[in-house]
Design a protein around this nucleic acid. Structure first.
Lengths: 345, 345
DNA sequence: TCAAAAGGCGCGCCCGAGGCT
DNA sequence: CAGCCTCGGGCGCGCCTTTTG
């Protein structure tokens, strides 16, 4: 017996139950509930009351099966642990709830393969997906976008909806800031390989440094985790640089811990700049100079783009909408982790 | 035409497509794919190859509709913004992925009504739910548990699976710690009304203080958000206390900011203790003395309990399993935000 | 012992019948 | 009698499960 017959004894009420109680046909109940204007007021009220009395709730699976719309949107993040995503999750959660859509939170474990295989399944169980810092190849991305609604964050691509946090701009400001303080040797602490953002940030730093006549080198790649901070700090100290710009705040905060451990004074011995302005950047010690990005806003915008695209008519419209894209400006927020270099070092 | 016919031109392949290609019946394909042992090896291989060639992926909605199992688990949090939940989300995400289950992340906005209404819908679209810090009444909880698999975190209830982070224990240690430093007047910064944890923590603090001969009062209730810190700090300063214990780290960190703003030295003028040991508690300024709770572990355990319960056979078994429960110990982690009170104040 | 056939699962949507103005 | 509003019937969605050969 397949019927889920928990405790109440009776299985969940269906449209048919409501129809019987209201004395109308199943199709009428369906219409009354989902398209109230297309039915007589009196009938509608009868139906609604019956539904209320029976505590009717539509079966989402059945609805999805016949309509093609699931009422869910997937949000893919490379690592749920990373505080950077918290704000994105939060921003999209907010928008999704307003639209009555549920959020499927998915962790891709920083792997393109995991991401791809998850999306294959997810494709059927959601109306669209928000890809944050995707590791997918261009071709895979295009292919996917053809069969489902997609919006990327920090990974623009022609024909696909996208939101970009223009951290490159903030990175330039960071370099200018450091140079104006007197720094001439700067290190960029590189993020994960294959990250579009990482390359973009590095290029911005590199370009700005060259323009301003400062030396800049790049460390090896570090995973975007707090514990990368140890290796990153050591790597930076191994150079003769007086300032460093980290791929993001998570790493930067990790570095602060290691620097304190090694007795390196920030900013006197080394200035540190982060990126993203995550939770914690303002109350760590010293408070972190960082590139402030409107992350939560990005989550909201990405969700709006996705919803406006899929609203027009379920998965059938996937790939049709040109894919609007937004670029959100960032700016440097100067706190206490940067300062003039010590004259003699 | 309802068919989702994105770009490839052809709609997603179904069991029937695979059956046709493999030259067998639909039911055979179904079995071959979901219950491989119950079918001839040669047949199975033919089917599997056909499925591979056609890039077949089952439609989760259809599967859910007929089987009753959705392959999803909901995780309800009162506020996705709260870093405390990050670790829970992370812990459960991990376990769920191992089991091939997807996570539905849901924000209840600190409201019992929102929580209840969401659960009504969710009930059909997931195989179970993890309720973190639920605000539901006992009766509502029981009622719900009768019709779906539930596991609560920090809200034990007979007959329902639960995980409790025993922060009361850590709270006692906190009081002992403060008293041993010489504090005699302590304030407990109260969390949200209706929170089981809040009451429990307060009682633990109260009891321990009385036992040790210290005075303890309680502030008004504060929402568990960082910006409550301002009001909380002011409220505490308004008393003659030399130490305070906050409902949780989020509030405590918010208080640190306000205290710095008002020029109050921590711990010289006021000792501050938090709870949970969230991300940031170790690198704020000063690093926070707090009750360390194995939050991620709690997320993992809760998920395991839920999965072991629902594994036995879909929603039909809801309410049957007695509901195992776990209590995870906590301990005080002393950092720099607590110290001896200034002799004269 | 295995595979084919058929009957749901619950809902959305299309089409057409009937009543009323 | 034409036209509109309203409702009922029926099919299809894709899969699982049971029964039958």
């Amino acid at each position: 017996m397949p019927g889920p017959t928990p405790t109440g004894g009776s299985r969940p009420t269906t449209l048919a139950d409501v129809a019987a109680r209201a004395g109308v046909a199943v199709s009428t109940v369906s219409r009354a509930l989902s398209n109230p204007t297309r039915v007589n007021v009196r009938t509608r009220e009868r139906v609604e009351q019956a539904a209320r009395e029976l505590d009717y709730t539509a079966n989402p699976s059945a609805r999805a099966l016949s309509s093609g719309r699931t009422g869910a949107v997937a949000v893919l993040v490379s690592d749920v642990t990373n505080p950077f995503y918290f704000d994105i999750i939060r921003g999209s959660q907010q928008q999704l709830k307003n639209a009555g859509v549920t959020q499927l939170l998915v962790d891709t474990e920083e792997s393109a393969e995991v991401e791809a295989s998850l999306l294959a399944t997810l494709q059927r169980s959601c109306d669209g997906a928000i890809l944050t810092s995707t590791r997918l190849s261009d071709s895979r991305l295009d292919q996917l976008a053809a069969s489902m609604n997609l919006v990327t964050i920090n990974r623009p691509r022609r024909g696909i909806g996208s939101v970009v946090l223009d951290t490159a701009q903030g990175m330039e400001q960071a370099v200018e800031h450091l140079v104006s303080l007197g720094h001439r040797r700067i290190v960029y602490v590189s993020g994960p390989k294959g990250s579009w953002s990482n390359e973009r940030r590095w290029r911005a730093v590199h370009r700005a440094a060259r323009r301003l006549g400062a030396d800049v080198v790049r460390t090896r790649d570090f995973p975007p985790r707090s514990d990368s901070g140890t290796g990153a700090a050591d790597a930076v100290l191994n150079t003769r640089a007086t300032a460093c710009i980290a791929y993001n705040d998570v790493v930067a905060i990790g570095m602060l811990a290691r620097l304190a451990e090694r007795g390196v004074a920030v900013p006197e011995d080394l200035s540190v700049v982060g990126c993203d302005d995550i939770f914690g950047a303002d109350f760590c010690h010293p408070p972190l100079t960082t590139v402030t990005a409107p992350v939560e806003h990005a989550g909201r915008v990405a969700t709006s783009i996705l919803l406006s695209g899929s609203a027009s008519g379920g998965p059938a419209t996937a790939g049709r909408t040109p894919g609007s894209s937004a670029v959100l400006p960032t700016h440097l927020t100067v706190r206490r982790s940067t300062g003039a270099p010590r004259a003699a070092r």
